[in-house]
């Protein structure tokens, strides 16, 4: 995958269908309908007080849902524009992330990474070990977390360089 910084965007290019497929799963990974432990992680309690936690669930979590959904909608819009840049046996693709969408991307990528980690019980040790062949769903989840982390890091560095 190549990364190009232009004046107003981050462009990922030269990636194959497999990676394009994983990119298209960014917003699916954190879908609350999928449920599981991800929901717990995406909507944590703010303290140990039952009353405040109940209020939080009622009044704050709906706002958080809106933030997360809005970010996912922006990302889905950009993902819909993934372009095939070469044909042949192993076609290559390209994706443009406008800098004005960077905050939404950071949010969606983080939702996806945290949801995957929660659902597959990924630990710090899993994250620190070297690359392994993808032979299970769990291995695929670790690969996805790392792929999304790479894009997130590129966006963070770009945003920091703009400040």
């Amino acid at each position: 995958m190549n990364i190009e910084n232009t004046k107003d965007a981050l462009i990922l290019s030269g990636f194959e269908e497999f990676l394009a497929g994983l990119l298209n799963q960014i917003t699916i990974c954190s879908d609350p309908e999928v449920g599981g432990k991800a929901v717990e992680r995406l909507y944590p309690n703010p303290c140990d007080e039952a009353e405040l936690n109940a209020d939080w669930k009622e009044y704050v979590q709906p706002d958080l849902k809106v933030i997360f959904q809005t970010a996912n909608e922006v990302v889905n819009g950009d993902l819909a524009c993934i372009e095939q840049i070469s044909k042949g046996e192993r076609p290559e693709f390209s994706l443009k992330i406008p800098l004005t969408h960077a905050e939404s991307w950071l949010n969606s990528l983080n939702q996806a990474r945290l949801a995957l980690a929660a659902n597959f019980e990924i630990t710090e040790t899993d994250m620190e070990r070297g690359p392994k062949p993808i032979s299970t769903e769990r291995e695929l989840a670790i690969f996805q977390i790392e792929l999304y982390a790479f894009i997130q890091e590129c966006l963070v560095q770009r945003l920091l360089s703009e400040e």
Partner: peptide
Amino acid sequence: AELYVQQLHGYLLLAVLE
């Protein structure tokens, strides 16, 4: 403090009030 925790949850950090 609650407002800050809410913002941090919006960024998906594990923030709590104590």
